[in-house]
Design a protein around this nucleic acid. Sequence first.
RNA 1: GGGCCGUUAACUCAGUCGGUAGAGUAUCUGCCUUUUAAGCAGAGAGUCGCUGGUUCGAGUCCAGCACGGCCCA
Length: 526
Amino acid sequence: MQAVTDRFYHWYKQIDIESKKREEFCKLSEESQVIKQRKQKAQELEKLGINLFPNDIKPPERAGAIKKVYEKYDAEALEKVEDTFRVAGRIMALRRFGKAAFFSLKDSSGSIQIHVMRDRIGKDAYKIFKKFDIGDIVEAEGRLFRTKTNELTIEADRVRLVTKSMRPLPEKYHGIKDKELRYRRRYEDLIMNDDVAETFRTRARIIQMLRHYFTSNGFLEVETPMMQSIVGGATARPFVTHHNALGIDLFMRIAPELYLKRLLVGGFDRVFELNRNFRNEGISLQHNPEFTMLEFYEAYATYEDLMVRTEELFAQIALDIKGDTKFQYQDHEIEMAPPWKRMTLKESLVEVGGVPEEELDDKDALNKRLEGMGVEMGKDLVLGKYLAKLFDLLVEPKLIQPTFITHYPTDISPLARRNAQDPSVTDRFELFITGREIANAFSELNDPRDQKERFEEQVAKRGDDDEIPPEVDYDYVRALEIGMPPAAGEGIGVDRLVMLFTDSPSIRDVILFPQLRPEGGKRSAS
RNA sequence: GGGCCGUUAACUCAGUCGGUAGAGUAUCUGCCUUUUAAGCAGAGAGUCGCUGGUUCGAGUCCAGCACGGCCCA
């Protein structure tokens, strides 16, 4: 117990030192003149009896909703509208004259211009208004009118400070461009870049559609452990953590698969889970250490049924988000209307990858080919590993239009059912769009004897590069022994799906707070 | 893990051959009651990522490190 205490003592001490460093780092910008001036202005407002952070604002009307109704009214028609409108939002641009000003007020629905005149709101109120800054959140109320340039505008009868901004917003025209700053300070990115906010609204819509599709098709949404004592369901290096009271190490899950299939055994014959997985691997344009995965399992279905389901689901999303099954992604025009192309893994290697057919069952030839491409795989791996590697390099990037690749080798598909005609391959597919893997699915292996053998063989043949703790999940085998109905299951990479439908080139553009090194230095608990 | 590029004011960016640090936005002061990247006049604002080296002198050249981006494995 003492050892644990010591460990945390040192850890906390280190955190203290580093957070002090970070505070110093931040203080530098605290010293900046603009921030000092803002803080002073805030104090001046307080001296005038203004609450900088009031909490008695009634829910305002939304700028977007007002515009939607009154955008079609001309100046004359607006004069007949006697209603006043009360809005609240952030001052985004401010054009002051001597005794009047225009500013644009932005809320989550859009923005609307406000006109403030001294002679209308009163001398004292105008004096206070003069201390408002770009970035402040304010409330304004008044009637609608059209300016000389025909912009729908609220003529303010009163304006009120809602939240004082102590720090200037980024430059008004260029916004915040530096990608590092945009990811670190997503709040500023969201304020300044409307398209970023739109991307995350689209993300939310896609997730809602996924959830709706599965629940309305009789699937039960479940939550299974994210902290697992045996890591399984995929091949990836896990994050390790420790539970003090139990005194055991736990792994953050790399996939929920084995738990979801236990639920098939338990009698939930259509289940899905839409949640985070964690993989302790590299970060790239399509990899974040934590990412969102949708996995669903359907009893009495086969992988072929799931291809149809996937086509239907994705086409529906395309219609809803893009209004068409055909849409642009970066430099490509994608056509999502079913049916999609289907090829076996080997066919794709020959037809797309240009690998001679006679090499396909020859490990040495494949390894030689890989070496020729500068890839050191090592000898004596299972055949499937060479095929998969060649596929990754030669075929995957070329699969721009939606394509199902089927018949993956059994030796790299330890949880998939063998193909009835050819037991060396499985009833499995992966879906590729824009050169990226989007989904992985198979008819599930439910023969406990075969599963146990494959687990044990996987452990025995574990290569040094595998990074999976060599452990057979015997409880999962026991569950299969109770009996799992024939089923098929699929995992869909939600972040990549969102990238596709929001035309985003990087996974970091669709994750609100992507993983970065902490500002001001590394920290390690070890 | 490797290669290339970047890091200068709160933000977006210039900075020539190594010779006292620049612009726009934002901020402050003054003028201005229909602007919308408002305008005009003026002002203030910098640990040039960090550490070392070369040099009479380094934002600039060299080395190492940090953080980030892109490409490759």
